[in-house]
Design a binder for these strands. Structure first.
Length: 433
DNA sequence: TCTGGGGTCCTAGGACCC
DNA sequence: TCTGGGGTCCTAGGACCC
C-alpha cells in the first residue's frame, strides 16, 4: 500500500549513542563500563553513558541529584571542541561510501544510498553494516543506524534498537513498524500536533499515515503534509549535502534567576548576550545584516523585535546602538522578565565585507581594528578579559552566583568604561537607565 | 518535563502598491 | 473621493528539532 514505486530511495540515518559521554570514554578507556556524565560546567547533565542511564540519570538532571542516586558517577565538563572533532571524523567516514551526506547535528547525519547496491554489488543492509563497523572501529563508540525509503522512516529505524542498533525498514514492512509507533514519537510531530491528533482519535503513526490525502490537506499545512508522505515511504525530504557549522544565524540567550523588572539589569544581560554573540560571529568571520532581540517574561511569553542594520556588523557597539534605540518597544517596567536573548541573522562573510573599505565609515574601521586587539587579548587571557560597561551589571551578577561553575570574574579584570573608551578614541555609545 | 540553550523553517496578517 | 481586487514584501510569532 505504501511506498513510492516510481523512485524508491534508500536513506541512511546514523545517530551516535550517548555521543558526548561516549567521546569521553573513547578518549579515556579507563572510563569504560562506568557511569559517566557530561555537563559539569552547567550544573545539569547534558549527556550520560548507558551505565549512568541504568541508574536513573536523565538529561537535564541536577548534578547533586545525580550524585545521590549514583554515588560512583564520574562528572566531566563538556568539551565541545573535542566532540566536534569526533563529529567531523564521523561524517567523513560516512562520506567514504557516498558524497551525499547531510550533517544534521553534532551526532547525527543522513546519507542517500540510492543506487549504491547495484554499483557496489552489496545489499543496502551490507552497506549499512560496513558503515557501522567502520564508525565503531575507528571512533571507539557505538552508533545506531537506520535505513528506509525516506528520511522520516530512516529516523524511525535508527531509534528502534538504541544503542548500537541496525534496523532496515523495507517498503513492505513500513506498516508493521508504524502500527507500533506512537504518533508523538515521529520526527517533526511535536506536542501541539500530537495533542491535535489525539483529539482526532489518532494515536499511532499508522493511523495518521492511513488517512486520505484530502483529509491531511484539509487539517494541516505543508510541514505535516510532507511528514504524512514520508511516513508512507514517499521521499520528499532530500538529503542535502551540507555542513552543520555553516551558520544561518547565531544567537545567545541567558536566563536569570530570580526574574527581574529592573531595566538596567535586564539591559545589561542583553548587552552581555550581544557581546557573546559578536564574539562567536567574529570567530566564524561572519557579519550580521539583521538582528532580533527578545525578552522572555516570567510566564514564558516572548516579546521580540526584528531590526535591520544600516551596515553589516559583528561588533557589539554597532548592534547596541540600534538595540538601545528600540529597547523600550518591548520592555515594560511592570513586567517581570526571566531571560533575554539576541539573534544575529542574514550572516555574510566578514572578510568579503571588510575588504570593501570604501563602504566603511571611520567609526566602523576603528571598531574592527579595536576588536581585533580585544579578540587577541581574550585568546591570551580568557574570555571576557574585556567587556562593555553596559554589561557590567550582568558580569557582577555572574561573579556573585558563580555563573554555574564558570570561573568567577577576577578583580583585576578590565571593562571598557567611559575612560578607556575615550582613551582609545571610541565614540560614546550612550548609557541606559 | 514546570521549562536551558542553540538552531531552522513556516505562516498569518499587516503595510504598501498598483 | 470612493471603490474593488490583487500582488508582494515584511515581520511577529509559532512549532519543532537536538
Amino acid at each position: 500500500m505504501f511506498l513510492d514505486k516510481m523512485f524508491p530511495r534508500a536513506i541512511l540515518h546514523v545517530d551516535g549513542d550517548a555521543f558526548f559521554a561516549a567521546c569521553e570514554v573513547s578518549l579515556n578507556p579507563k572510563l569504560k563500563g562506568k557511569p559517566v556524565v557530561t555537563g559539569l560546567e552547567r550544573g545539569i547533565a547534558s549527556a550520560m553513558t548507558y551505565e549512568a542511564k541504568a541508574k536513573g540519570v536523565t538529561r537535564g538532571m541536577r548534578l547533586f541529584e545525580i550524585r545521590k542516586i549514583c554515588p560512583d558517577v564520574i562528572i566531566l565538563p563538556s568539551d565541545y571542541e573535542t566532540y566536534s572533532i569526533f563529529s567531523h571524523r564521523m561524517f567523513n567516514i560516512v562520506r567514504r561510501y557516498t558524497t551525499v551526506v547531510e550533517e544534521y547535528s553534532i551526532d547525527e547525519c543522513f546519507a542517500d544510498l540510492t543506487g549504491l547496491d547495484s554499483s557496489s554489488g552489496l545489499s543496502y543492509t551490507e552497506i549499512a553494516m560496513a558503515i557501522k563497523r567502520d564508525l565503531e572501529g575507528e571512533l571507539g563508540m557505538t552508533f545506531s543506524v537506520g535505513v528506509s525509503t525516506s528520511k522520516v522512516l530512516a529516523k524511525v529505524a535508527s531509534k528502534l534498537k538504541k544503542p548500537s542498533g541496525l534496523v532496515i525498514i523495507p517498503g513492505k514492512e513500513i506498516e508493521a513498524h508504524l502500527m507500533k509507533l506512537p504518533i508523538e514519537k515521529v520526527w517533526g510531530i511535536g506536542s501541539q500536533t500530537s495533542l491535535f491528533l489525539w483529539r482526532q482519535g489518532i494515536h499511532t503513526a499508522l493511523e495518521f499515515a492511513s488517512k486520505t490525502e484530502e483529509w491531511v490537506k484539509e487539517k494541516f499545512s505543508k510541514p505535516h503534509e510532507e511528514i504524512w508522505h514520508e511516513l508512507r515511504g514517499v521521499s520528499l525530504y532530500r538529503v542535502c549535502p551540507g555542513k552543520i557549522d555553516e551558520h544561518k544565524s547565531i544567537s545567545k540567550t541567558r536566563t536569570f534567576t530570580p526574574a527581574s523588572n529592573n531595566r538596567e539589569f535586564i539591559f545589561s544581560q542583553l548587552s552581555k548576550n550581544i557581546e557573546n554573540a559578536c564574539i562567536k560571529a567574529r570567530r566564524h568571520h561572519l557579519v550580521a545584516g539583521e538582528i532580533s532581540f527578545f525578552l522572555k517574561t516570567q510566564e514564558f511569553r516572548y516579546s521580540t523585535l526584528e531590526l535591520k542594520l544600516s551596515l553589516p556588523a559583528n561588533v557589539p557597539e554597532q548592534i547596541l546602538k540600534v538595540v538601545i534605540a528600540n529597547f523600550d518597544k518591548i520592555y515594560l517596567p511592570s513586567v517581570l522578565y526571566r531571560a533575554s536573548g539576541i539573534t544575529l541573522r542574514k550572516l555574510t562573510d566578514a572578510r568579503v565585507i571588510q575588504t570593501d573599505l570604501f563602504g566603511q565609515s571611520i567609526e566602523v574601521q576603528s571598531f574592527n581594528k579595536m576588536y581585533k586587539e580585544i579578540d587577541a587579548l581574550s585568546q591570551k587571557y580568557g574570555k571576557h578579559t574585556l567587556f562593555l560597561g553596559s554589561s557590567m551589571k550582568a558580569m557582577l551578577d555572574a561573579q556573585h552566583t558563580g555563573d554555574r561553575g564558570r570561573p568567577t570574574v577576577r578583580k583585576q579584570e578590565l571593562f571598557l568604561g567611559e575612560t578607556q573608551r575615550k582613551r582609545l578614541g571610541i565614540p560614546f555609545m550612550g548609557e541606559v537607565s
